[in-house]
Amino acid sequence: MVDGSKILISTEDLGLVYKLGRGKGKSKNPKAATLTALRDVNIGIREGEFVSVVGPSGCGKSTLLYILAGLYRNTSGKAFIHGHEITGPSLDRGIIMQAYALFPWRTVEKNVEFGLEVKGLKKNERAEIAREFIELVGLSEFADRYPYELSGGMKQRIAIARALAYDPDVLLMDEPFAAVDEQTRTLLHDELLRIWDKTHKTIIFVTHSIDEAIFLSDRVLVMTSSPGTIRDEIEIELPRPRNNELKSSELFGTYRNKIWQHLQSSTDSTREVTTILGRHILDTVPQEAVI
């Protein structure tokens, strides 16, 4: 798995069991009140690597990401960053969510400064760094706007700038482009790869779109549900820089089929998979793969 470069993030038999119910304390049947979201997850993410986690919704992708972010506590196994066990959130990890989660009462610039404030930087230092990263995502002219004045794609670029500003080692992205339109998404893919190339960050990218995962990644982890676990991983050996023509290449199609089959074999009927995965994956799967 390791090809010379260092492992940045790893997990050892990581698991999480949710307690269900309204927190009433002692339940008569404790087993009925739990849900195993993750079981025996073992991953190793290399420094600077772009890894996607693909799987049907509800399989535990967000849960895994939140554990890595330190926002959720795993109930079994361990997660590590830099060889140290993850016990809580820290500025060495930046999380980017589907719903942008920009602070609506802050201007674009003040949003990007948020992590820097937490870090305790001085006002002028914060402003300087914020401007640098707003420029990186190409939105300098919107620095003084409020989030409601921005489109979805712009909001997500600001969310990325906000996470990059405090200089984390890894970006944890939870279906960041799922809410934007197809055209914008394509642009954001190029943009993200450009930023990745420039900043050398490690990126863990969660998605339910097979194409998105292949296009962006060095490696794709295929996740299946009940309980959520990593079923397989596929090294993506497409040349970089990636461009859109690659999507119609033979190799791309091979990866697509391979991932599709992993997802499919984990469920009894194809229809179930396709409905779980939703339209997006159905669209991206070549006809012959849908048996």
């Binding site: 926002l71 500025l91 719903a99 602070f103 948020f114 937490v118």
Partner: peptide, 28 residues
């Protein structure tokens, strides 16, 4: 919005910081 709280927490904000920088402005 729980996402705002998570987002701030992911940056390691203190509880006081969370109240003054997120909870109160969000409920203003």
């Amino acid at each position: 919005d729980q996402n705002l709280i998570r987002s701030a927490q992911s940056m390691g904000i203190s509880t006081t910081g969370l109240f003054f920088k997120v909870v109160i402005p969000a409920s203003s």
